[in-house]
């Protein structure tokens, strides 16, 4: 029983990262209708950024969090302005596919050149601290990460729902022509959206450094899972992405517990395929 409870808690905590990644991917896809295939690599960049700030400047990972978010936002905005906006004009999905995949390769190989292929980690004084929640023991960094996730989710949801810029982002995602008619600067919204999506990946990367090794391809599995979260949680839905992420984390931990940890990846993707097939069948039946 305690083992099950422990797995549930771990699953929720892990799912939080998938949720963060999924929300970033979701907002980018919602507004520009492009899949950001370098989303996982952005998480990796956030990890190395945190690592550098910690190793060379001695900044605690949690204090570095806002800084990492801002730097990642700017990085995203620059990429959007110089690369993605110009290719959006071609209206070619393949162009953007190659662009974001290529960007991902560039980033992971760039990290390989700069930092080498060995695993790096950050060990702070509280990295190993565990907190007992009843019978369940939780690593303090994981708990903090989850709290940060909740705050970020609520902030993002509120921002999109109530602020003028948030409404403009939703307007562009629902109808770009209508947005232009209303004088919304669509390019500026693209810039903000991509920056925001990348910043969310960066936040996930920063939080992960406490208990996950840092290496050039660390983001790949998170990038893939972000796609699953977007598809399962529903396009454009922040709460959908949140719950889909948590569910995905739970599924992974449950399959690790009941079947085998080495099969958990496989089970995640098989479940994903099953969901896709079932959904397709349901859509066809409705027609």
């Amino acid at each position: 029983m305690d083992v099950l409870l422990q797995a549930i808690v771990n699953g929720i905590l892990l799912g939080g990262f998938y949720a963060l990644m999924g929300m970033g991917q979701n907002i980018i896809f919602g507004v520009m209708k492009i899949v950001n295939f370098c989303h996982g690599e952005m998480l990796m960049v956030g990890m190395y950024l945190t690592y550098m700030l910690y190793t060379y400047a001695g900044i605690d990972p949690y204090l570095a969090l806002p800084l990492v978010a801002i730097i990642m936002f700017l990085l995203g905005a620059v990429i959007q302005h110089t690369l993605i906006t110009p290719s959006l004009k071609t209206k070619s999905f393949t162009n953007l596919l190659f662009l974001t995949v290529g960007l991902g390769l560039l980033l992971s190989n760039g990290a390989l050149v700069l930092f080498g292929s060995d695993y790096k980690s950050i060990r702070t004084s509280y990295s190993q601290t565990n907190i007992m929640l009843g019978p369940v023991s939780v690593a303090l960094p994981k708990l903090i990460s989850f709290l940060v996730l909740i705050v970020v989710t609520i902030a993002l949801f509120t921002f999109l729902k109530y602020s003028t810029t948030g409404k403009q982002i939703r307007a562009v995602s629902q109808n770009p022509v209508g947005a232009e008619v209303c004088g919304i600067n669509v390019r500026r919204i693209y810039l903000l959206t991509y920056g925001l999506g990348v910043a969310l990946a960066g936040i996930a990367g920063c939080l992960l450094t406490q208990f996950y090794s840092i290496y050039p391809t660390a983001g790949a599995s998170f990038g893939f899972r972000a796609l699953i979260v977007v598809v399962v949680g529903g396009l454009g839905s922040i709460p959908g992405a949140f719950f889909a992420g948590i569910l995905l984390g739970l599924l992974e931990q449950m399959s690790a517990l009941f079947i085998s940890p080495s099969y958990s990846d496989m089970i995640v993707f098989i479940t994903f395929i099953v969901i896709l097939v079932v959904r397709q069948l349901l859509i066809m039946r409705r027609k």
């Binding site: 003028t164 409404k167 403009q168 939703r170 307007a171 629902q174 109808n175 022509v177 209508g178 947005a179 008619v181 209303c182 004088g183 919304i184």
Partner: peptide, 30 residues
Amino acid sequence: LDAGIVQVPEGRQLFTEMTVLENLQMGAFS
């Protein structure tokens, strides 16, 4: 638009998942 030429586009081009009020708020650009 700032000069005062505002259009009601062909096909309406509303933000269908936003409320009526939110749609109207989007009309206030300046």
